[in-house]
Design a protein around this nucleic acid. Sequence first.
DNA 1: TACAAAACGTTATATTGTATCTTTTCGTCA
DNA 2: TGACGAAAAGATACAATATAACGTTTTGTA
Lengths: 143, 143
Amino acid sequence: MSTEERLERAMRLCTGRGARLTPQRARVLRILIEAERPLGAYEILAEMAGGQRALAPPTVYRALEFLLAQGLVHRLETLNAFIDCRHPERPHPAQFLICSACGRVVEIDDEAIAARLLDAASQSGFAPSRKVVEVIGVCEGCR
Amino acid sequence: MSTEERLERAMRLCTGRGARLTPQRARVLRILIEAERPLGAYEILAEMAGGQRALAPPTVYRALEFLLAQGLVHRLETLNAFIDCRHPERPHPAQFLICSACGRVVEIDDEAIAARLLDAASQSGFAPSRKVVEVIGVCEGCR
DNA sequence: TACAAAACGTTATATTGTATCTTTTCGTCA
DNA sequence: TGACGAAAAGATACAATATAACGTTTTGTA
Ligand SMILES: [Zn+2]
Ligand SMILES: [Zn+2]
Ligand SMILES: [Zn+2]
Ligand SMILES: [Zn+2]
């Protein structure tokens, strides 16, 4: 699926929800899609600055906040970075494999893990709202 | 298990490994144990400053680095905070339930989750080194 | 066209984490 | 015991990440 197709899908999703994927927000999403790796907020900022007047951090953080809320991107807690979601149509357990050698990230959405986690939380009387699962390791290509 | 007992256990573990739990490091560990909640590095720093000359951030970060390496504390990625481990005798899957209302954190060590996660990683050709599992939600008492 | 809400711009600042170099402490062994 | 090298701690400066606060522009709508 091409960058353009993904952007169009994102636009459809947003309009369908009454949310506005403004040019600014779409630009941040495009940068993340084209990067094909997680980017820090300030990396995105640097990308956006290229070619026009410099923008300030809140611009990027606000766009990211929107994109996160729409499920179009995920935040990687262990990297303080952001990555676009490959299937943002519906909410899903967001679980990540992060290669510490090449930096590449794979999103897996294993329902069994999510279910087991929910189960464990319930046993402790816990009502989960967000599940962070990030596995740091070395990918196949890097071994 | 009392604070003193935990500190003694930590000391035993370290000496048994040829690692040095210096007064400085023990102090950081004590602060974390007595807090009974996760603390940020700068919160620890503030605690340590009480009563004597101010210390600098690297002091705390270095102590934390040591304590993390010894498995005496864990880092909570979603909070940028640290918490002492209740059973540091051996390595274990560190999974956390974090209450967004009261801030309390429960460490669960569910081998099934860890195994399922390892399985999923293997299927993607991934050799995991560290697994971060943090569930944000609302605890029983806060509902 | 007026209006209110949402989005955006701008400045300043808060929070978290490191790099680097110096000084001190500690264990080891001549 | 005293010299020595390694580990730890002190100190300064700074980098990286994130948000507060407030004013301006844009946008959809009545
Ligand atoms: Zn996703
Ligand atoms: Zn790799
Ligand atoms: Zn633990
Ligand atoms: Zn609670």
